[in-house]
Design a protein around this nucleic acid. Sequence first.
DNA 1: TTCATTAGTTACCTCAAGGTAAGTACGCGC
DNA 2: GCGCGTACTTACCTTGAGGTAACTAATGAA
Lengths: 140, 140
Amino acid sequence: MKKITKWDEAAALCDSLSEDQDTLTREIVTRLADKWTLWVMSVLAEAGEPLRFSRVLEQVEGVSQKSLTKTLRQLERDGLVTRKMFAEVPPRVEYAITPIGVEMLEHVEPLWSWVAKSVGRFQQARIVFDTAKDSREDSL
Amino acid sequence: MKKITKWDEAAALCDSLSEDQDTLTREIVTRLADKWTLWVMSVLAEAGEPLRFSRVLEQVEGVSQKSLTKTLRQLERDGLVTRKMFAEVPPRVEYAITPIGVEMLEHVEPLWSWVAKSVGRFQQARIVFDTAKDSREDSL
DNA sequence: TTCATTAGTTACCTCAAGGTAAGTACGCGC
DNA sequence: GCGCGTACTTACCTTGAGGTAACTAATGAA
């Protein structure tokens, strides 16, 4: 009685991975959902050219220097962006998205779109849940 | 010079959302990547029938009672699982995935599979990055 | 000499996730 | 009367994300 055949395929794929690889898979997916990673990647992708650190800092509204540095380091480590340092003063560092970074964005997009499209249903569900809870509390 | 047309579509979709809805979209995506949510959902989906709290606790290896309760409450609030309580002693509570929960899993699966399939490339990238970093540190 | 610029780094803080361990409520069987 | 079983709930702790603010190195400009 398994209906989620596609998900089963994913599970089978996971089974074929070592524990290290499984951990890494989770780590990558988890990072995708942190506060800045996707935003930074999409800024670099939409720019279509390498961007200096300070340009990214401007375009990713609200990110702190510290968090941006950290995010970019992680992305660089995973091969999702490149970092090019110029021996100049003041320093110049350019970041660019890699092909695999683009590929990842392309795979995130359908999920993100679906969630955005479905957001009304989630709002509705929350209203139902919260009002039910309120009435439960009222009756105490 | 925008190449990521699909991602642009997602961005356009986001632009059409209120700030509340945008926040909610991020929240849902973020929750997908937390430690237990996906695992709990896939256990319920694969079961193909409602499961008692204690069954889920067994099958989601390593989750604590506290975290499972919290995860299930959040999923219930968002309409992704249902919670049915029976007036019995000892208490019986059954959880089941909803159609929208199934739908969400189906949209997560391609991304997850891609990451799992690509995990070797990420490992490789990390090795390159880490050894380069080591040699930088050695030369200090 | 002093300052501005750029890309960090560091110290310090808060907040939330998540773990452990213990307590709660309740009817049933012994 | 007492413990068992079930689904929580609470107190307490550790860890990591992420924020602010200040500091750094090197050089060209004023």
